[in-house]
Design a protein around this nucleic acid. Sequence first.
DNA 1: ATGGCGATTTGACCTTCGTCAAGGTCAGCC
DNA 2: GGCTGACCTTGACGAAGGTCAAATCGCCAT
Lengths: 231, 231
Amino acid sequence: MSSCDTCVVRNRAICAGLDSREINALNAIGRRRAVTAGEPLIWEDDDSLLVANVIDGVLKLTTSTEDGREQIVGVAYPSDFIGRPFGPTSKASVVALTDARVCVFSRNDFDRFAREHPELEHKLLERTLAELDRTRSWMMLLGRKTAPEKIATFLLEMSDRLAETGCTPTFGPAKRFSLPFSRQQVADVLGLTIETVSRQFTKLKNEGVIELPSRREVEILDRPALVSLAG
Amino acid sequence: MSSCDTCVVRNRAICAGLDSREINALNAIGRRRAVTAGEPLIWEDDDSLLVANVIDGVLKLTTSTEDGREQIVGVAYPSDFIGRPFGPTSKASVVALTDARVCVFSRNDFDRFAREHPELEHKLLERTLAELDRTRSWMMLLGRKTAPEKIATFLLEMSDRLAETGCTPTFGPAKRFSLPFSRQQVADVLGLTIETVSRQFTKLKNEGVIELPSRREVEILDRPALVSLAG
DNA sequence: ATGGCGATTTGACCTTCGTCAAGGTCAGCC
DNA sequence: GGCTGACCTTGACGAAGGTCAAATCGCCAT
């Protein structure tokens, strides 16, 4: 029995839609791997040797300057595809934010397999186009939004994204959730400093818009207010 | 004779690699269109009805907030592909910066054609992946770089991008070039204000790093200085 | 409970860049 | 040539957010 048979993202990842013969072939070139929180999987500017599907957990994609400034340029959730197929180098590092499990492929194997399976390439294309849309709307946030707008937009996005992956079949966005980010990582997503993030969180709490039961937990008390603040 | 036969981007656009029968079929569903500087081709949040290849000219991709702030999220040069295939809506407006010619397709026709031609989809995938890489490195700039770093990075990127499209077979980046952007548009690319852009340009000129022969012309006098400033 | 440590919050201060306003430049046009 | 209007530059000022430093919190090991 291939491990794909028991894969929880089997029907959401790019492997969805492959027939059982194809799944077996893909299974033959991939293997599961556990990544612990904080552990890197792919390094910026290294040769692109590895691509993967996220099975569970959350990972960050980052780029850094020489002097150590970091920007989180993407976040990968279960069923997302990570790595750079069809290109010699990865332009972003991938590091686990939580303990995670991924299904990794050598890039060469994956590239070859993908070129032989147009349906898979099509799924990858759809995903890449959607990711590009999301990335572009994040550029708007980075370039033109104020700190309060950034924080409000971020909380709403988290509330949407984390609802999708929850076990309980939730409808609509999550009211309460656990951030997979430290304050520094929130700052790295939004192009702010940790202090500014902290101050804005506190401000929203004092205004009764959110509650912060613990460092990582957020509860949205007044969603319309957040939507309005998000600009 | 199909207009593809005389197309100047025939060997660089995603149509490259199609055989003559396929080219004819693609030609049958596409048509050339001229767009004058300032004219929009696609509107943000509208139904995605149109995709296109850029034949010549430069176009901007933008997103805007309700209150009118604008962020340029991409720039399309000759041979680039624009529009949102396989999705219901365009998440960015496309507006010509210079007079331009494009080869447009109805999105439905294009989607159908692409699904039947895996080689074309593969080219589109490669392009989309490369664009995602570029977009992510721009996020680093928007989120973490200072105004002087942004301007230096921008000038170096322009010098590279505009060299590729020049008629004279240049080797390496252009030393002197004509910006396809107004000062306001440079500001919209970099997430700055027009005043800051102007001040930084003037500062670089006074420091002898660049020369500004006219409003749109830039000559790079000290490229190493620019590279060092870009951070 | 106590101590220690990293993460977070808070406060005081300061820099960068945005805002507002005025003036300059240039191309096209009469 | 001078007028017009769009675009750009420059200056004075202020606010948003960054920097630095100290206090606090939460958690784990003792």
